[in-house]
Design a protein around this nucleic acid. Sequence first.
DNA 1: CTGAAAGCGCTAACAC
DNA 2: GTGTTAGCGCTTTCAG
Lengths: 353, 353
Amino acid sequence: MLYDANTKNMRRNSTGPTLKEVALAAGVSIPAASKVLHGRGSSIRVSEVKAAEIREAAKRLKYTPNALARSLRSSRSNTIGLVFEHFGHIAAGPQYYVQLLDGIASELFKFHYRLTILPEVPHHQVASVLNNGTLDGIIWCKLPADPQLLKELEDCPLPIIALNTPPASETDLCFFSCDNEGGMKLAVDHLAALGHRRILFAMELGETETPDAQARLSGMRQAMEMRQLEFGDEDIVCWSFSADEFPAWFASKPPHTAVIAWNEGIAGSIISAARSSGITIPKQLSVIGFDSTPYCDSMMPRLTAVRQPISEMAHAATRHLLNILSEAESVGNSVKFTCSLDVRDSTSPPFSA
Amino acid sequence: MLYDANTKNMRRNSTGPTLKEVALAAGVSIPAASKVLHGRGSSIRVSEVKAAEIREAAKRLKYTPNALARSLRSSRSNTIGLVFEHFGHIAAGPQYYVQLLDGIASELFKFHYRLTILPEVPHHQVASVLNNGTLDGIIWCKLPADPQLLKELEDCPLPIIALNTPPASETDLCFFSCDNEGGMKLAVDHLAALGHRRILFAMELGETETPDAQARLSGMRQAMEMRQLEFGDEDIVCWSFSADEFPAWFASKPPHTAVIAWNEGIAGSIISAARSSGITIPKQLSVIGFDSTPYCDSMMPRLTAVRQPISEMAHAATRHLLNILSEAESVGNSVKFTCSLDVRDSTSPPFSA
DNA sequence: CTGAAAGCGCTAACAC
DNA sequence: GTGTTAGCGCTTTCAG
């Protein structure tokens, strides 16, 4: 005997008809229907006649497979989770974030994965948020260098990719990042070649402790040292987005002739602050930003900026995760991407030169 | 007898320990453990002693509830799906999209919902993509006015909110949109008050057929008519993002003294095209954009723009969806948000005036 | 070729 | 108080 039409579980719930109902309608067993409609089960062979009936029934009933049940069974959700440290910034902040998101999503979609954006994950309970069956893997942007967090992540059985995070020494997570040091060197070299000797680094409030920030700082330090240019604490400033304090700063600080900004957002606010203080850029002050995005072209003057290959990085990281998922492939390969410099109009030889 | 320790299902799979293992470790039944750890089941009462043991076991084993199983049982995934018509634009396009995304996400996270970004949904198989158990509700941005699609959506048992979509007459979906007509009227009024009589509308390639676009166009038409200003096909132009054709256009077209741009992106490209052609803005040409975002402030001159309350709209739409979910509340309330005008520096009386 | 049976991990109704 | 019994919808042996 097959399935009883008046079992109480036959109620049409919100998810629509089930495989059982289709099987019933077609007069076959559930596994048969499963095989025909989803083509999995190895040991089941269905005659073309029955198969046609099953397909017909499914169509007529508008059968929709329940992904939840399938995932529960197969331990595969076909969904990747994205963790953004400081997601709140995504709209307010630089374009950088969107490009990352875009790159990840487009790659994922190509392979029929879904993307779930997670709220900020409490660092002490990573597992319960991530490892709950709904996610096949994680991409964590700007993973903080908190050793305890790293430890927890390693205990988490899910494959995790740290994107835009410089590799941390003592773990075997997989890191995708840009060569921050190299990028800073490009910026310093460009300015030095133009004749600048005293250069300011403008950080963003709240970002100073991130691995990225540390890397850029040390990159700048090295590059300046290499050219025997002065670079000390006085040459590092933490900018708030409004930059109201600009005029005072410009008058009081050491005679910097150029600024390297933590990101395009900071650079933009420096430029507009300068403009409203009547300071001419680049004549009186050269400005370089980190991250070369469409933003940079809309500024006036157009912003010279270090370019990290954001989309490439996002693609590569995503692809790597997908590879791990499909073939249990080489985990632990960290990749560092080279930066380049997009020279636009916000840099020139210093006025005095 | 409780659970047998050497049943073969006891293997530690990738999702970690199960309720069963916790129950076993604590020497209680599965429902008891469930009740204590997740506090649901009504009819079960557990002694404090056992409860403590259960909690202890869970902690020791690092038990993580499987959200998949729970969702399957409860028909609730605590996840909202987001459909962006043309998601590809999100990084390249105007900030508008990000702000929407940001608004939705932040509201959702507040209520412990997750956000899943869906790839573009094939219009002929909406149900199978959306109604598969993994989503509690949908927010569809820029829902196209395709009647067949609307029909399919109505058949879909999931609550669906159309965000940034003017209400379509014949459905009972719920629409959240801005008053495009009113916004265009503000723009026209502003320009007319400054003395402009011939105004161009610069659309975006590929957007011209969207409901939003139609609404803005008709809004502009009405506003111009009301003031008895000329407005015909010659006054509508479709701009590609590069706007290389600007100089030719500026020389050949009717003597427009002002442009209203479909969005900030278009406006920005007009401004920079004008700049490189040696045309002064606003003196020789006033420019107004739709969507007042941080972009507008970074342009030179700063862009006068119509503001739709993007974040508010996103919040309201999200909240509404959540309400429907929690109380099966009033579906079908469409809301239209009022626009305002942010006057900045890209508009002035026409040169000739 | 095809159906019955077991079970993914969890919850809810019903005993005692 | 506490355990047993039934499934959520689907897939996968395993018998015939």
